[in-house]
């Protein structure tokens, strides 16, 4: 499975962003590699393998979330949609990476995943629909709303300033 090795750094970054916890993300990547070694031999094309790995990572994460929710008697709301949100018409301040990462972390998991796939990894909407197993129209609306939400979040200097100071009591 030579094609797998060069894809691992990207897969690791994706898992860390989607999951948030580096330790859990590393466990998940290890599990996905095991699955790939068991089942991925049939996927020869590197582009298909990459999409398969991202899909497998995301599915394993959702399985883990559901298992945890069942244990802790919580409900996983993964089918919801972000409220529509206007892209601000005032100029955005210079976007700092730390602010962007915080804004990403504040998005619901499904919105964060879709915007990462669309903008950071630049998968086509068709590929994202296949990776996430959702209709093309849903990909479009999720990307659009996630973009607008990120822009709105980055345009809120007061809120950002107060978060930076910690705001603890």
């Amino acid at each position: 499975m030579r094609a797998l090795r060069p894809l691992l750094p990207e897969l690791t970054r994706f898992a860390r962003w989607v999951i948030g916890s580096p330790g859990e993300a590393d466990d998940l990547v290890q599990e996905v590699v095991l699955r790939a070694l068991q089942h991925g031999a049939e996927i020869q094309e590197p582009a298909r393998l990459k999409a398969w790995l991202f899909r497998c990572t995301r599915n394993a994460h959702i399985d883990a979330l559901r298992a945890r929710a069942a244990r802790e008697r919580l409900v996983v709301l993964d089918g919801g949609e972000l409220d529509a949100c206007e892209v601000p018409a005032a100029p955005l301040p210079a976007i700092e990476r730390i602010d962007l990462e915080r804004a990403l972390a504040e998005l619901p998991e499904y919105a964060r995943t879709v915007i990462l796939l669309a903008e950071v990894w630049q998968f086509s909407y068709d590929e994202i629909a296949c990776i996430l197993d959702i209709p093309l129209g849903t990909v479009r609306s999720r990307v659009s709303r996630a973009r607008a939400r990120l822009a709105a979040s980055l345009a809120a200097p007061v809120a950002r300033g107060s978060r930076r100071e910690g705001g603890g009591t």
Binding site: T12, R13, V87, L92, I95, L100
Partner: peptide
């Protein structure tokens, strides 16, 4: 449009890679 362009540039400038876990590398 300018805001969305700036956001897109910032998103595309984010790192796409991270050091893979040792366990995954060892498996390979």
């Amino acid at each position: 449009r300018d805001n969305l362009d700036a956001l897109q540039r910032a998103l595309r400038a984010l790192p796409r890679i991270a050091e893979p876990p040792d366990g995954a590398l060892a498996l390979l």
